[in-house]
Amino acid sequence: HSLRVHINGKDFEVHNADEHVIRALEELIRRGADADELKEFLERWKG
């Protein structure tokens, strides 16, 4: 899957995101994670 996440006016393109990554991202958003947390998660995932 390809996923586009809009954080703090920046678009993050997440390519080849598997279900696990997408679910983790949705969980963060549901918990009310702020932009920094989401960005950190995506950067860690992209490795």
Results as ranks from 00 to 15, higher is better:
residue 26 E to W: 10
residue 42 L to W: 08
residue 47 G to I: 11
residue 18 D to T: 12
residue 19 E to H: 11
residue 3 L to T: 15
residue 39 K to P: 01
residue 37 E to M: 13
residue 26 E to D: 07
residue 14 V to E: 01
residue 17 A to C: 03
residue 43 E to L: 09
residue 21 V to A: 05
residue 46 K to M: 14
residue 37 E to K: 10
residue 43 E to R: 07
residue 47 G to L: 07
residue 27 E to Q: 10
residue 3 L to E: 15
residue 44 R to I: 07
residue 38 L to M: 06
residue 22 I to T: 03
residue 16 N to Q: 06
residue 26 E to R: 08
residue 22 I to G: 02
residue 28 L to F: 08
residue 17 A to S: 04
residue 19 E to Q: 11
residue 36 D to C: 03
residue 36 D to A: 08
residue 12 F to W: 06
residue 23 R to C: 07
residue 29 I to H: 03
residue 28 L to T: 02
residue 13 E to H: 05
residue 14 V to M: 04
residue 45 W to K: 07
residue 16 N to K: 04
residue 9 G to W: 01
residue 20 H to T: 12
residue 44 R to D: 14
residue 6 H to I: 13
residue 46 K to E: 14
residue 29 I to N: 02
residue 47 G to M: 10
residue 31 R to I: 11
residue 30 R to Q: 12
residue 7 I to T: 01
residue 18 D to H: 08
residue 42 L to P: 00
residue 2 S to C: 12
residue 27 E to I: 07
residue 10 K to N: 05
residue 21 V to F: 09
residue 46 K to W: 14
residue 22 I to M: 05
residue 10 K to H: 07
residue 23 R to I: 09
residue 38 L to C: 03
residue 6 H to E: 06
residue 31 R to M: 11
residue 29 I to G: 03
residue 12 F to D: 00
residue 23 R to S: 07
residue 34 D to L: 08
residue 16 N to E: 05
residue 17 A to N: 02
residue 33 A to E: 03
residue 15 H to Q: 08
residue 22 I to Y: 04
residue 42 L to D: 01
residue 29 I to D: 02
residue 4 R to L: 10
residue 38 L to H: 01
residue 20 H to R: 11
residue 7 I to L: 07
residue 15 H to C: 04
residue 6 H to S: 14
residue 46 K to A: 14
residue 41 F to E: 06
residue 37 E to A: 12
residue 28 L to C: 04
residue 23 R to W: 05
residue 12 F to R: 00
residue 1 H to K: 15
residue 26 E to V: 13
residue 42 L to H: 04
residue 5 V to T: 02
residue 22 I to N: 01
residue 14 V to I: 11
residue 23 R to K: 12
residue 19 E to S: 11
residue 21 V to N: 02
residue 36 D to S: 10
residue 21 V to D: 04
residue 16 N to Y: 09
residue 18 D to C: 05
residue 9 G to S: 01
residue 29 I to Y: 04
residue 37 E to D: 13
residue 10 K to A: 06
residue 13 E to Q: 05
residue 37 E to N: 06
residue 36 D to K: 09
residue 4 R to Y: 03
residue 2 S to F: 14
residue 7 I to H: 02
residue 17 A to L: 08
residue 17 A to H: 03
residue 13 E to N: 02
residue 15 H to N: 10
residue 3 L to C: 15
residue 42 L to I: 10
residue 11 D to V: 15
residue 34 D to Y: 05
residue 26 E to Y: 07
residue 6 H to Y: 02
residue 38 L to D: 00
residue 31 R to N: 13
residue 24 A to I: 10
residue 31 R to F: 10
residue 30 R to H: 10
residue 24 A to C: 06
residue 47 G to N: 13
residue 2 S to W: 13
residue 11 D to H: 14
residue 20 H to P: 09
